[in-house]
Simulated assay, not measured.
Amino acid sequence: MSRAFRRSALIGAGLAGVLTAATIVVACGPGSGSGDTAELSVSGGYVPLPALPGGMGAGYLTVRNTGDGPDQLVRVTSPDAGSVTLHSSGVTSMSEVSSLKVPAHGALELARGGHHLMIMGWQRQPAVGDRLELDLTFAKSGTITVKVPVEPLTYRPGS
């Protein structure tokens, strides 16, 4: 299957409705056959229930890139929240960042203690089991929409 056909099929699937699969794949880049194409998939996303009603929340997920070209996560929005910002945590501090790199043949992991999303201005108080829509915008690959579950505050994947 050609890259152009795969890309057309993915775009058509996206237009048919909101993508809600656990893993979503998109292949985009400056042109088919250029060798500099990012092929992204998003998986493992979740949002711990905010500790305080109306309080800030965090979001975690993994963006994998099996393509030959890098990309950057440059913006995240949600119809369920007033703002979603990209953050990076160090040993003693946390700061907002303008973008996060998704390396070729690598992954961007948003996880506790590292890169993550800060979610503020909830449209309504989330509850465990709700699904939060996140629109992830990449510099080269456009926007990927995912829905991630709201989990208990103490949730840890794989435990």
Rank of each mutant, 00 (worst) to 15 (best):
A4D: 13
F5W: 07
F5H: 09
R7W: 03
S8L: 15
A9V: 14
L10G: 08
G14F: 04
L15M: 12
A16D: 10
A16K: 06
L19Y: 02
L19H: 05
A21L: 12
A22H: 12
T23R: 13
I24Q: 08
V25Q: 08
G29E: 02
G29Y: 02
G29H: 03
G33P: 02
S34I: 00
A38E: 07
E39P: 03
S41A: 15
V42K: 11
S43N: 13
S43L: 15
V47R: 08
P50W: 03
A51C: 01
G55P: 01
G59A: 06
L61A: 10
L61C: 13
T62Q: 15
D68P: 03
D71G: 08
Q72P: 00
L73W: 05
V74G: 09
R75Q: 11
S78K: 09
P79G: 09
P79A: 09
G82F: 02
S83G: 07
S83L: 07
L86T: 10
H87T: 13
H87S: 14
S89F: 04
G90K: 09
L100I: 02
V102H: 03
L108G: 06
E109R: 15
E109W: 02
E109F: 04
E109P: 03
L110K: 07
G113T: 02
G113M: 08
H116M: 15
I119M: 13
M120Y: 04
G121Y: 02
R124L: 00
R124F: 03
Q125I: 01
G129R: 12
R131N: 11
R131Q: 11
L134N: 06
L136N: 06
T137E: 14
T137V: 01
F138W: 05
F138A: 10
A139L: 15
G142N: 04
T143D: 08
T145K: 12
T145F: 05
K147H: 10
K147S: 12
V148S: 08
E151Q: 15
E151T: 15
Y155R: 08
P157C: 09
G158C: 01
G158P: 00
